[in-house]
Amino acid sequence: MKKLFALMLVLALALSLSSCSKKEEATVITVATNPEYPPFEYVEGDKTVGYDIDMWDAIAKKAGIEYTIEAMDFDAVISAVAANPNTIGLSGISITDERKLTVDFSNGYINAGLVVIVKDGSGYTTADQLKGKKIGVQLGTTSDFSAEEITGKENVAQYKTFLNAVMDLQGNKVDAVIIDKPVGQAILASLKDDTLKIVDMGLQADWYGIEVNKKNPELLKKINDALAALEKEGFFDELAVKYFSAE
């Protein structure tokens, strides 16, 4: 019994020491992401992959940033960045003026555009037709903001994941789902449900940016510099071909 206790004590000490030493190493940036948003971020096997992840990896290489990826709920991404200046939010996050009052964003790195998923045969082709209709979206996405403008706050059903929104569209609980163009294409391809179709209503999307804690302007600058260089090198186009070549 005593031996066991001693062993546990040693283990606990070792653990606490190792966690101490970690902090003293060069800062490792934690990338908080909600990998339920293909093709921007999703899980393949046991790895988080996607457009955002590739983009970030290129940025990190360029800026010499070490990082680890941590998957979590979208709500938790906000908290994680707020709690630790060495955590960034990378999750298809729309840049809005209001959010800028609380957190910083990198320059926008993608604006993929929005589409609307409707039931085939519903006859919706323009945004005006959706006025007053129930629209399903993922909470806090650029689709959410767009839907509010079209149909009014009270008619927007905000889900934790867009997948649930699409399921309620299948179940007739909402009339349409607004979604990022590549996300919408990815989900329709995987659902293989021919009662649904994608309509481009020319909706305006927000740019996506990387969320950075206001207490870490140095990191923000590094990221922005890297982004500018990558754009100049044509990496943005390269990545677009890799992920959005279906167009």
């Binding site: 709500d75 906000i78 908290s79 707020a82 709690a83 809005t96 209001e98 959010r99 009052l101 609380t102 957190v103 399903g136 909470l139 806090g140 959410d144 059903a157 905000q158 889900y159 934790k160 649930n164 929104a165 309620d168 969320e211």
Partner: peptide
């Protein structure tokens, strides 16, 4: 019930947080 997009009290908080990005 916020998971099925019912805007109850927790969801109301989530909604505002998604707009402001306030930590808590």
């Amino acid at each position: 019930l916020s998971y099925i997009a019912l805007t109850e009290l927790t969801k109301a908080g989530d909604y505002i947080r998604s707009r402001t990005f306030s930590a808590f």
